[in-house]
């Protein structure tokens, strides 16, 4: 799980071009939107694309997306839940 979260943080930084942000700057449980990283609605679309490209997970329901994209922790848990046992 820790390795997945670290990889996810690196992918978020790259996908959103978060200059001057390092993986250790992102708290696992900090909100991604509003406070925390201060991302916006376009970033949420970018994160959906990130999930699809890197983990082959398509989020169809926007309400589900809102829960998944709360933090790095919730994203990592969702990815793990979708991976074959």
């Amino acid at each position: 799980m820790e390795a997945l979260k670290l990889k996810l943080k690196q992918q978020i930084i790259e996908a959103l071009n978060l200059q001057d942000t390092k993986p250790e700057d992102i708290d696992d449980n900090a909100p991604l939107f509003g406070e925390g990283l201060g991302l916006d609605s376009i970033d949420s679309l970018e994160l959906m694309v990130l999930l699809e490209r890197n983990y082959h997970i398509k989020v169809e329901d926007p309400r589900e997306g809102r829960k998944i994209l709360q933090s790095v922790q919730t994203m990592a848990e969702f990815i793990q839940s979708k991976q074959p046992a």
């Binding site: 996908a15 376009i42 679309l45 970018e46 694309v49 699809e52 490209r53």
Partner: peptide
């Protein structure tokens, strides 16, 4: 293949 396209 026309899927997973970045909006930006």
């Amino acid at each position: 293949s026309e899927t997973a396209l970045n909006p930006t």
